[in-house]
Simulated assay, not measured.
Amino acid sequence: MVKVRDVCRHVRSKNAGPYWVTFDFFFDGPENFEKYHASPALSPELFARLYGTDPALVKHIPVADLNMVKISYPRATPQGGVEERDMHSGQQYVRVLDVELD
């Protein structure tokens, strides 16, 4: 099976304001973008399972001109709160690198 790390030249996670986290998946070309950007493996349910968010609130935004997809979800707690473990959400992407794509 192909993993995210195999078809994306860059994956990052970051804040999208104090209440949201966003992931950017930059595919390594238009072929892989077309083949995998809508993969069921990158479903709202994956983000719910990995990050404890409501799958109904996960946003999936393909950007074909850049061969990338942006996936955003609301944080469980606001940025900088008592339960904060990654203030800038810069390390959250690591969990998705080994997700197998269909």
Rank of each mutant, 00 (worst) to 15 (best):
M1D: 11
V4F: 04
R5M: 15
D6S: 11
V7P: 14
R9D: 15
S13F: 15
S13N: 12
A16H: 10
G17E: 12
P18R: 10
P18L: 05
P18Y: 01
Y19W: 13
V21N: 08
T22A: 07
T22D: 04
F23C: 05
F25N: 10
D28A: 03
G29K: 02
N32S: 07
N32C: 00
E34F: 05
E34Q: 09
K35C: 08
S39Q: 02
S39K: 00
L42H: 04
E45W: 02
L46P: 02
A48I: 02
A48Q: 04
R49C: 05
Y51I: 07
D54K: 01
P55Y: 02
L57K: 04
K59M: 07
H60K: 03
V63F: 03
A64E: 14
D65W: 01
L66C: 01
N67L: 13
N67S: 11
K70Y: 02
I71A: 02
S72L: 08
Y73P: 03
Y73M: 13
T77S: 15
T77D: 12
P78E: 14
G81V: 01
G81C: 13
R85A: 00
H88E: 12
Q91Y: 06
Q91L: 11
Q92N: 14
V94P: 05
R95F: 01
R95A: 12
R95K: 14
V96Y: 07
L97T: 12
L97F: 14
D102H: 10
D102W: 04
